[in-house]
């Protein structure tokens, strides 16, 4: 099965439960991101891997038009249902592959993506597409899990994240994410970090993790709790196991192509 088939399968299976996850539609978190992006009222925005469309719809309250794209039909159907319930006429959802966006260059004022990069096989491909369809002077924003800067610790987190949800590929560190922006001439203007406290059993219930894998996840997190192996700081409260996902949001402005004389070295 290809990775994209796996993503479609997971998000079809998880669609209803996933859409209801509090951390995803938490108003405060949505507003924080939309405020940081700060769209002009006449802006046209694009959301990659929109999922249930929470961010796209929050953005649509603040700008002219939003298009949300996703690979998975089932979750787009949920997004569309919510859109109709909320009577939002300036959002549309359509299927597209983040690696091959069906839009001409520079068509959007804002291009954003939240909590999806850790599902991508090669995030630099999707990121290049995001940068391509954004106009010069427009904004590109990414919010995602922030893994440890120490590769072994990041790998430990990926291991239990992947056991729980096979469509997880790899979470990037803040440094890796930031360098992706730099490589595409995107000037980071706002950055903030945040945390999501995950109750382990609930977190595995909405992903429908099968019992054998869930047991492995519990074992890894129990080790992490004792030995501090990934940075997610597992802890127990009233007998329940929790851990903390670090997240980061980076919001950048797309620069015009650099004039040749300003390239590295300078030299008079």
């Amino acid at each position: 099965m290809s990775h994209k088939d796996r993503v479609r399968e997971e998000f079809t299976r998880q669609a209803e439960a996933f859409a209801a996850v509090a951390a995803l539609h938490n108003r405060e978190r949505l507003d924080r991101l939309v405020n940081a992006i700060n769209p002009a009222p006449d802006a046209r925005a694009l959301e990659i891997a929109t999922g249930p469309g929470h961010v796209a719809m929050a953005m649509a309250e603040r700008c002219r038009e939003v298009i949300g794209v996703d690979l998975t039909d089932a979750i787009l159907a949920l997004a569309e249902r919510t859109r109709r319930e909320r009577g939002l006429a300036n959002v549309r959802f359509q299927r597209a592959d983040a690696d091959q966006l069906p839009f001409a260059d520079a068509e959007f004022d804002i291009v954003f993506c939240r909590f999806a990069f850790h599902h991508f096989e090669d995030p630099t491909v999707a990121f290049r597409e995001m940068a391509r369809v954004c106009r010069v002077g427009g904004r590109v924003a990414v919010e995602d899990l922030a893994a440890s800067e120490i590769p072994e610790r990041a790998a430990f987190q990926d291991q239990f994240e992947r056991l729980r949800d096979p469509s997880h590929t790899r979470a990037l560190s803040i440094g890796e994410l930031a360098r992706m922006f730099g490589a595409r001439a995107l000037e980071i203007e706002t950055a903030y970090s945040s945390e999501v406290v995950q109750p382990v059993e609930y977190w595995m219930s909405y992903s429908h993790t099968p019992p054998d894998r869930a047991a492995q996840v519990r074992t890894l997190l129990a080790r992490d709790e004792k030995e501090d192996l990934s940075g997610v700081r597992p802890f127990r409260r009233d007998g329940q196991l929790f851990f903390i996902q670090k997240t980061v949001a980076l919001i950048a402005r797309k620069l015009p192509p650099l004039p040749p004389q300003s390239r590295a070295g300078g030299g008079v």
């Binding site: 046209r44 966006l101 069906p102 839009f103 001409a104």
Partner: peptide, 15 residues
């Protein structure tokens, strides 16, 4: 308006 911004996902030419 939508047609104007859409492009071929493979070669990015107009549709």
């Amino acid at each position: 308006e939508l047609l104007d911004i859409l492009a071929c996902p493979v070669c990015k030419a107009p549709l």
